[in-house]
Every structure is written in structure tokens, then in C-alpha cells.
Amino acid sequence: MTKELEQSQQESSTTFNGTVALIGLFGGLFWSVIGYVAFYLNFARVGPALALMPWALGDWKNGWLGQLVGILFIAVVSIPVAFLYRMIFAKINKPWPGLLFGLSLWVVIFWVFNPMFPGLKSLQQLDLNTIITTICLYLVYGLFIGYSISYEYHERTAHESEAIQS
């Protein structure tokens, strides 16, 4: 019995921060793969390799290897992004902050920091398909990270209060 209790405690002891990091990692991985599919189908002119553009890395970054590394890079970068969300919105257990978060990420990257990406045309010159595809991707990416974190936060706090009550 005690052994079982110990184990159950161990299993549930994945910390909230650990979960947030995992959500970020997986969210980045999954949605950048979808981004690559969109790029492959020519919906968007830019693929996940966009994340590597600010750095001078050699020619490989423009090929499929660049896309692959871009996917991994986005996955890793998504961890701090997830923590950013956790700091701002975690307490609102609703889906809309996630959508808002994704949209503002898009604005920051494609508009504010646009000059940092050499391969990226300015917004006025980008074609409609690329803009729509990337906005949609950032929306679902934000929703994924945001909703997951808020829900997890809510679940954990709800359980804690239950524990206090009993």
C-alpha cells in the first residue's frame, strides 16, 4: 500500500514547469511539421527554416536540411515561448487568450522583427496565401500552447484546493 502511494505520488509529481516545457516542445514540433507540409504544398513561401534566417549558417539552411533543423529549432524555442504564456495568461482557463497570443506572436515576427529575417519579404510584398497560412498556423499554435497550459494550471489548482478541503 505504502509502495503504491509512493509510486502514485512519483507519477503525479511531474512539475507544472516540466509540463509547460513539454507542451512548448511538442507544440513547436507538431505545428512546425504542419508548417513544413504547408510549405511543401506551396501554401506558404516560407517554411520552418525561416527560424534560421537571422543566422549566417551556410547554404544548407535553404534546403530540406534547413527545414528539418528549423523544425527542431522551433521546437526548442517554443519552450521559452510556453513559459512566456504561462507568465501572462495561465490563470485564464479560456481558449481566447491562446488565439490572441498566437496572433500577437505573428505580428511580432512578421511585422515588428521583419527586417531581422533576410529571406522574408516585407508585409506589403508578401503574397496573400503566405500571410493567411502563417496567421492560421500561429493561431492554432497559440491555441495549442495557451489552452493546454491554462487547462493544466486550472486542473492543478482545482486539485490542490480539493486536497485542502478534505
Partner: peptide, 12 residues
């Protein structure tokens, strides 16, 4: 755009 936005809305 119809395909992309449609899929996104459906997912959301």
C-alpha cells in the same frame, strides 16, 4: 485561402 482558413476554423 478557403482550404487553409476552413481547416483552421474547423480545428478551432
Amino acid at each position: 485561402p478557403g482550404f487553409i482558413i476552413g481547416t483552421t476554423i474547423f480545428f478551432i
